[in-house]
Design a protein around this nucleic acid. Structure first.
Lengths: 84, 84
DNA sequence: ACATTATGTAAATTATTATTAACATATAAG
DNA sequence: CTTATATGTTAATAATAATTTACATAATGT
């Protein structure tokens, strides 16, 4: 045994990249500055390496003037889905 | 010097307690079971000791069949408010 | 009185998110 | 070619969330 050396595909997806481009091609660095985290953190969140804290999630939605649910989507059924 | 031995009043408030009572007086333990965390974690989140992970927040909202924003409120202006 | 359930809270440990620093590639500008 | 910007990625460390175990009180029921 011993598996999962991989990150976390995760049940939570996000639309950060799209939203950044729809907001003047905002860079990861600028978004990071605006919400108070580093650009590496934005990159990690955007690529789904891990999920942001609830506060960071609220702040990101605020930057784009949308609801939290329009940035992050949680798949309630991931995990217990039919196999094929 | 040396302050803040206290938790974190936090910019994020929640209505978990109210929602639990409006859903058949659901106990902290049951809510915890339903979303996959312990009752102590629910107690800590409910009392504002710290914020839940984004996934836990989505799961809690799902249990009560409401949007995440109806359970957790983020005060965008906390921190930079007028002083009386 | 005794048992059960719900909740509060604390300490020690584990897991996860975030940080800084570093080095990489790609692109556009001059 | 050189410079600057944007992004990808990794390692080591720090900060925060969650866990288990434990003990406490209050309320309810028998």
């Amino acid at each position: 045994m011993m598996a999962e050396p991989v990150p976390k595909p995760g049940l939570i997806s996000n639309r950060i990249r799209t939203l950044r481009f729809h907001h003047g091609e905002m860079s990861q660095a600028e978004l990071g500055e605006r919400i108070g985290v580093t650009r590496q953190t934005i990159a990690a969140i955007e690529s789904g390496k891990y999920s942001p804290t609830l506060e960071a999630a609220f702040r990101i939605a605020d930057v784009f003037s949308v609801q939290l649910g329009e940035v992050f989507q949680w798949d309630a059924n991931a995990g217990n889905r039919a196999q094929t």
